[in-house]
Amino acid sequence: MSTTATLASRGRSLVGRRDVLRRNGWTFGLLGLLAVLLLFAKIVEPSYGVLAIQGLGTSVLPLAIAAVAQAVVVISGGIDLSIGSMMALTSVVAASAMYKQPDEFGIVVVIGVLALGLALGAVNGALVVTTKVPDIVVTLAMSFVWAGFALIVRPAPGGGASSWLMDLAVGPILVDWIPKATVVMLIVVAVVWIPIARSRLGLSFYALGSNALAAFRSGVPVGRTKWASYVVGGLFAALGGLALTASTGIGTPVPGPYTLESVAAVVLGGVSLAGGRGGVLGPMIAVVVLQMVRTDMTFMSIDTNLAIVAQGVILIGVVMFGSLLEIRRASR
């Protein structure tokens, strides 16, 4: 509960259960929806059980972390369309470096890959801040660049992963129905994000995304903060890349659908595209919800492709609903 609340609301000290509920209504709504979807799956397909839950934990891992990366940048008022490419690059680097190496070396690789992620994010951020080109254009262009480097590192899927890393992404922990991947993800995200969120930097992210002028007047170093948000985004993208390698055991140089789906997850997860609002937990849950929608539709023998349609419709529907609320509030 406490992890939930801090993750979802930038690590404020807890101020009573009711307040937590009020602040994170969207997140709890998503959790409720997820529960309904899981229940539904169990009813329609009685064989839906622990194995499926574990599989779910593993399959959503890369996208969930990608969604966190995107959330950090979007909260700070930007958008990063190069997340998928950064994941591909970090993933192939990890898979190539770990291939046929002892497990201990894998730890060195992980540290190196995280540093790489920081560096990639630093480049993105520096370009956004110094060129004053809109975020969307810079990161779109950089998505080409990082994907290109990924292909240079490894022209075709392959490589390997340290066994301990792969082990982190599969199977249960403690009890059968707790996927280890999910626990690992929550711990990793918490370890990285909560200190940031509790620091001045995290506050500055929200301030910058919420109102750049007010942030400037409050003494937030605008350029540096924006840059830092991309650096943190890069770090999470690297974690996402490691998750890809861990869950597949190889590195794939072609970026998956993670960039655009991370944007979708962020919006579904209650982060305002205008910046300043939301947390990182909502987007993670949104990823699971989207995956469960697909699963449930499969169980109902609905064409899986309609699940893609449903994903789009949900995305549009949620955003339309959100902007209708905004319009109504503005006209009042």
């Binding site: 404020r12 500055s204 301030a207 919420s210 007010a214 942030a215 409050s218 937030v220 609002r277």
Partner: peptide, 15 residues
């Protein structure tokens, strides 16, 4: 010049 999406306490912290 308060940040709209932060609570008052956070607004105090930031300055």
């Amino acid at each position: 010049s308060l940040i709209p999406d932060l609570d008052i306490r956070a607004n105090l912290r930031i300055t």
